[in-house]
Write a protein that binds this DNA or RNA. Structure first.
Lengths: 212, 212
DNA sequence: CTAAAAACCGACCAGCAGTCGGTTTTGTAA
DNA sequence: TTACAAAACCGACTGCTGGTCGGTTTTTAG
């Protein structure tokens, strides 16, 4: 009996799109069921509430991004690039670009906040491990890793949330990141060009991404 | 003709309390008018919408806090204490303590986000000026002040939003702040005890006196 | 006193999330 | 094939929401 699961996925797909175009509050259950061509009761047969749909939609997004991030963690890459890659993996990319703009609309504050929380839980352990790796390699030097990663995630999500961040903000971000993790002065500067290059284009693991 | 203004203030007061106890979404206009003992039409005679009430409530809060922060800016105090004082002025204090807990409830995400934005606009110029003062005194040393202040505010609001932050988080915060602003290693450490002392006072007995 | 402006009233509206008793479809076992 | 229960689905309905509007009372000014 998997007809139910298929319908559920269909509804999640519709909800995903509508939440991100119209916003969560402005998307009505009636709107979802109209587009799906089903009755109210069917919707509530598959979901407990509208909010549960949001929760599951967010879960799908995070899971997908987390998978990519874990690939980067496992890859053989320079530590700073790993850090950047993991952070980047949790940013909307490709077809999901409109998400960025959508999440910043005030009416989506609840969704944005929920995503931020889940994203932190997913990204934090991966980054912590990478930082430890970096300390082992002598690239970083610091204590209280989780606390520092928390700050790092805080800053980077605020920076990348805003698609129009300035070059100056990016430079300061890298400088501050160096200081937070105890990297050598200027040792992360080379990431600046990498980020700009990737702006609008997805970071693929195909090449080794080594650049200086 | 100030009868109208008086009623408006009364409604703002009721809304303020209800927004912070029940949350914005969960507070209904019906709820507000029932408590005020007026009709729906009267509410909409004084306000354009429920959201405008939220905007004005937030404005009241920020204005009050900004006034206190400006007093600190003008005072003759050591620069690090000024920085801390300004940041602290924009934290809920005294009778407003429950705000902290209320704003962190997910249903208040919209309100929280709006407050965060307004707070940043109010606090940023004051902090920038203080940092410049600090650079003049040789306490700090950095460029791109607005960008750094933005990060500082970001971190501190995330830290103090959570009433149960750990001592370790506080230490890391101060360490990172030193680095962001280019202060001498450990030069802000003394703030740690100051902050903890303030926290104790909060719950102990609250201010009874008036100051002038 | 008078007339307008300000303040107020409450019935009303469309839209919302969620409910529920009933109906159809589907899988399964006899 | 039949019988039957579980799964899937239906849509009218409820109570509440933010917001509207034409009409009424109160206040103010000339």
């Amino acid at each position: 009996m998997k007809k139910g699961e298929k319908r559920k996925q269909e509804l999640l797909g519709i909800a995903y799109r509508m939440f991100l175009t119209r916003g969560y509050e402005e998307t009505s259950v009636d709107g979802i069921i109209n587009e799906a061509g089903i009755a109210k009761g069917t919707f509530y047969y598959h979901f407990e509430s509208k909010e549960q749909v949001l929760e599951e939609v967010i879960g799908m997004m995070i899971e997908k991004e987390a998978k990519e991030a874990e690939k980067i963690l496992a890859a053989q890459l320079p530590i700073p690039i790993k850090i950047l890659g993991i952070i980047n993996a949790f940013q909307p990319s490709g077809e999901e670009i409109p998400i960025e703009e959508a999440l910043n609309r005030p009416e989506n504050a609840l969704m944005h906040e929920k995503i931020r929380g889940r994203l932190y839980e997913a990204a934090s352990p991966l980054l912590c491990e990478t930082v430890r790796e970096g300390i082992g390699n002598g690239v970083f030097s610091c204590e209280d890793i989780p606390e520092r990663v928390k700050i790092l995630l805080l800053i980077s999500s605020a920076l990348f949330d805003d698609a129009d961040y300035t070059k100056k903000e990016l430079t300061v971000f890298l400088d501050v990141t160096e200081k937070i993790l105890g990297a050598k002065e200027g040792s992360l500067g080379f990431l600046s060009e990498l980020i700009e290059k990737n702006n609008g284009q997805r970071y693929e693991e195909g090449g080794n991404g080594k650049e200086e």
